[in-house]
């Protein structure tokens, strides 16, 4: 019943798929964190920045969100690996060969950052101005206002959008296969399916693994959402 090509060990591709799934989660998590940092910076630039930083942040979010991820990944992958390699030559280190996984993380993180910027910006803007003014009136410093008032008040608004981005980045990791430079789940599936010629089986199994990641994430997301919304009235 259980197809032998899915067994773990030398004869099957089970362990390859498992390693691919781990790699997918690693790439997704790292890109998500990079995206959060970039999003935080982007939102700060858009809300509190001067004309120059606002302009740059606007270009960043407009361009990244209007161009297909596949095109961006290919473009940034070639440009990024070439750029870093050139940088290595410039500082006298010699040409650098970048690890495909590492490049993928940077590229996906850069793309995520544009979407995260909009989510975080919207969430901050949804915090009633009065609350921020009240915090200032108490004599809080900028950092205190952010950590004590803005952050806890914006999280309920930001979590659904950010959760969505997490689900998107898991699925976007599959696009890295176009560069052929990484060993995540989609690439492993492609290798296994091509080797055994059992395309339907492997793409089906791989789809199930992605679905499991999504469903498990959904469970934790709803727990997290309930936590950050504690003490607030229920949504209709």
């Amino acid at each position: 019943m259980f197809p032998s090509v899915l067994e773990f060990g030398k004869t099957g591709f089970g362990d390859e798929l498992a390693r691919g799934a781990l790699s997918t989660l690693l790439i997704a998590a790292s890109s998500f964190i990079i995206g959060l940092v970039l999003g935080q910076l982007g939102a700060a630039a858009k809300l509190y920045g001067g004309p120059a930083s606002r302009f740059i942040a606007n270009i960043y979010t407009t361009v990244i969100r209007a161009v297909p991820e596949l095109v961006l990944i290919l473009l940034l992958f070639f440009a990024g690996t070439k750029g870093i390699s050139a940088l290595g030559v410039a500082v006298g280190y010699g040409p650098v060969d970048i690890n495909g996984t590492f490049a993928a993380i940077l590229v996906l993180g850069f793309v995520q950052g544009a979407y995260a910027t909009e989510v975080i910006r919207g969430a901050i803007q949804a915090v009633p101005v009065g609350q921020i003014e009240a915090a200032r009136a108490f004599g809080m410093s900028g950092t205190q206002v952010f950590t004590r008032v803005i952050l806890p008040a914006m999280l309920p608004n930001a979590i659904p959008g950010l959760a969505n981005l997490w689900l998107v980045v898991i699925k976007d990791t599959a696009l890295i296969t176009v560069t052929g430079a990484s060993a995540e789940l989609a690439q492993m599936t492609k290798n296994a399916a091509g080797f055994t010629k059992r395309y339907f089986l492997f793409y089906f199994v791989s789809g199930c693994i992605y679905l499991a990641m999504t469903l498990v994430s959904n469970y934790f997301i709803s727990r997290l959402e309930a936590y950050v919304r504690r003490g607030q009235p229920k949504l209709a």
């Binding site: 990791t173 599959a174 696009l175 296969t177 793409y203 791989s206 999504t214």
Partner: peptide
């Protein structure tokens, strides 16, 4: 849930290579 929870790339390959073969 299934359509939204799996990458479009995998769905496309499942149809093109899987169903196709």
């Amino acid at each position: 849930t299934v359509m939204r929870g799996t990458p479009l790339l995998i769905q496309l390959y499942l149809f093109y290579y899987g169903v196709g073969s």
